[in-house]
């Protein structure tokens, strides 16, 4: 019997909002798939194109950057910068033959534990449908 494909998804989470929302999801015991692995950054604007590409290169099936809601960035506009970077990287992924939907920018406030869990679930489902990353498939 073929096992269900379990994607590995990297979530870069801003310390002030999304990472706190993840803690909030925890304290509310909201269930989401274990496929999502969080890397904490001080601000979503700190996430570098290199980090995103490296994640895909190493074998991530999906990546998302989670920052604060519009206007709530602790550092004024780091989340806008992250949004722009992610949009740009999505175009780039398409050029090199990776589905751009594997990358996403999401926004939430520190209180939104439920949103964190929902996004983690939706992202996992989406990537599961897309199947393994072409990079991983090529390496195999």
């Amino acid at each position: 019997m073929k096992e269900q494909f379990e994607p590995v998804i990297v979530a870069f989470c801003c310390h002030y909002c999304a990472y706190t929302a993840a803690d909030m999801a925890g304290s509310q015991r909201l269930v989401y798939p274990p496929n999502v692995k969080i890397i904490r950054v001080p601000c979503s604007g700190k996430v570098d194109s290199i980090h995103i590409l490296k994640a895909f290169e190493k074998g991530a099936d999906g990546v998302y950057v989670a920052g604060c809601l519009d206007g709530d960035c602790h550092f004024k506009n780091g989340n806008d910068k992250a949004s722009r970077k992610v949009a740009q990287m999505m175009r780039y992924l398409e050029e090199i033959g990776i589905e751009p939907e594997r990358l996403e920018m999401v926004k939430m406030s520190a209180g939104m534990g439920e949103r964190f869990a929902r996004i983690a679930t939706e992202m996992t489902e989406k990537i599961r449908k897309l199947g393994p990353s072409p990079i991983k498939a090529a390496a195999a």
């Binding site: 990297v10 890397i39 601000c43 604007g45 700190k46 996430v47 780091g78 910068k81």
Partner: peptide
């Protein structure tokens, strides 16, 4: 915030405590 480190095209800037090699090492290990 580290925004400058992310934007720097020459990777001449590092944010202490969140250096690139630490983040990449996490990815490699994962």
């Amino acid at each position: 915030c580290g925004i400058c480190a992310a934007e720097c095209p020459a990777k001449a800037i590092q944010l202490m405590q969140f250096e690139d090699d630490m983040i990449i090492s996490k990815l490699e290990q994962l």
